[in-house]
Write a protein that binds this DNA or RNA. Structure first.
Length: 459
RNA sequence: GUGGUUGUAGCUCAGUUGGUUAGAGCAUUGGUUUGUGGUACCAAGGGUCGCCGGUUCGAGCCCGGUCUUCCACCCCA
């Protein structure tokens, strides 16, 4: 080994146990998606750059992994472009493809491209990796999985209601209790911006407001002032900073702030509708909470905004998010198709379940029986039995070589295989099977039928 | 992209103000034991001290750069 091998920053290998645990989460989410009527699609891991660039804001563009063109990618670049230090222009000319940054934009592209084959409203789910050229830190990787469910072609608020039910169902199935589903509405945010005379600074305003619980009221005001929002406007926000109480009472308070904004009132009506439906239907383990400071990125949300917070005892960023986007397909030329969707952050959910010890013990299905190999004759005899066992659904295998028994037993022990079957000359002559229980150390001679019954009974 | 932090055997870590041939535990392999694992004992293999450069008679240790780890910011799942 001349050089130690390694993997790129922010990526991970997964061992068998980790894969089993990840599959447990995937399977749970997939199962719930399907019971809610979603169908799977997949899209390529990389898209044409123009499909992705500009869809996530400037910050997003920076975090998109660009793929270098093949061959001599400098061949047709004029000399002056190489020396002018304009990396954005150069990037466009040497890279025409990029790794997918999320699943929503590729989905919008898919919908537009296949619009004539799709029966609307279209409910799809998608579980695939995405890539971001971000600096890794806790729960943040450069390659990670998203599990998305979206509905396009329906502007009914019942979809929002369904997604909240879906979140609740998934986290209940995972036994992850105490998650908070935070909800807000973009219309409320733009209503507030309108009221304080900062409609043109909506993004700056919401980004600052979003930090309220993290940096506090004073710093939020400071940041807003710094972004050019007027003092007079900010003072009108005062009720917002102290907003608390039930969903209904928060909406009441908002009414006073938003009385002059049509858009803001619309947003409140939507929230009230969703909340009363959820109150009526009930949630199993999750809690729905109105959070007017919730303003997570994604420039394309136009209505509801969701974010799921892990139970308070674990320190983890959001484990899911989503929202309503009225015109996502518009950027690809298909207008008047409203969509709404949510996303689960698999890797973060994994970390949370691990921290709380919520993975079932049975996520890994180990081999149940190892047959000791004494030689070719015995191996063939063993494989006949193994064939029968496998038909009976037992995970069985033969040690591949006639190695020393100690070594074979050791192998079974290390792999935590609960049963070993020993077949030598003696057993072959009497057509019997010596079954050793590796936990108790007990050993019996049995017929093949009893052997299968015995193992099925114990597994 | 900004600031800090980390790196010594497969893993977890020692390593004196800079001084012979860099150590331990666990793991691995072989043996004590050719039809019985876990325990014990004996032995062996395994390192360009992240990488590149500098200072020095001499660098795992000091200096610079770079990569990586983790954390905070930006942003976000």
């Amino acid at each position: 080994m001349a050089q130690k091998p390694s993997i790129p920053k922010g990526t991970r290998d997964f061992n068998p146990e980790q894969v089993a645990k990840r599959n447990y989460i995937f399977n749970t989410i997939r199962g719930v998606f399907e019971t809610f009527g979603f169908q799977p699609i997949e899209t390529p891991s990389f898209e044409n750059s123009e499909t992705l660039m500009g869809k996530y804001g400037d910050e997003g563009d920076r975090l998109i992994f660009k793929i270098l063109n093949s061959g001599d990618y400098l061949d047709k670049i004029p000399q002056e472009q190489l020396t002018t230090n304009n990396y954005q222009l150069l990037t466009k000319n040497i890279s025409e493809k990029a790794l997918r940054y999320d699943l929503t934009v590729p989905f919008a592209r898919y919908v537009v491209q296949h619009q004539n084959e799709i029966e609307f409203p279209f409910k799809r789910y998608q579980i695939q990796p995405v890539w971001r050229a971000d600096r890794p830190q806790k729960g943040r990787f450069r390659e990670f999985y998203q599990c998305d469910a979206d509905v396009v072609g329906s502007d009914s608020l019942w979809q929002e209601v369904e997604f909240i039910q879906l979140y609740d169902t998934v986290f209940s199935a995972l036994k992850l209790e105490g998650v908070t589903i935070k909800i807000n509405n973009r219309k409320i945010l733009s209503g507030i911006a309108e009221v304080i005379g900062a409609s043109d600074k909506l993004i700056d305003f919401t980004v600052a407001l979003d930090k309220l619980d993290k940096i506090g009221e004073a710093k939020v005001k400071e940041e807003m002032l710094g972004k050019g929002i007027l003092e007079a406007g900010i003072s009108k926000l005062q009720p917002l900073f102290t907003l608390s109480g039930s969903f209904e009472s928060q909406i009441e308070s908002l009414k006073s702030i938003l009385s002059t904004s049509e858009e803001g009132k619309k947003g409140m009506e939507e929230l009230a509708f969703i909340n009363s439906a959820i109150t009526e239907l009930g949630l199993t383990t999750a809690t729905l909470q109105l959070d007017v400071t919730l303003a997570r990125g994604l420039n394309y949300y136009t209505g509801a905004i969701f974010e799921v917070a892990a139970p308070k005892q674990v320190q983890m960023g959001s484990i899911g998010g989503g929202g309503r986007y009225d015109d996502l397909t518009g950027i690809f030329g298909l207008n008047n198709v409203s969509g709404v969707g949510i996303s689960f952050g698999l890797d973060r959910i994994y970390l949370v379940l691990e921290e709380l010890g919520l993975f079932p013990e049975t996520v890994t299905k180990n081999v149940e029986v190892l047959f000791i190999n004494f030689g070719d004759k015995e191996a063939l005899f063993s494989l006949k039995a193994i064939k029968q066992m496998r038909l009976a659904g037992i995970h069985a295998e033969l040690y591949p070589e006639a190695a020393k028994m100690k070594k074979q037993m050791n192998h079974a022990d290390k792999r935590a295989i609960p049963f070993v079957v020993i077949i030598g000359e003696e057993e072959m002559n009497s057509n019997s099977y010596s079954l050793k229980n590796m936990i108790s150390g007990e050993q019996f001679k049995l017929s093949l039928q009893d052997l299968i019954l015995e193992i099925k009974k114990k597994s």
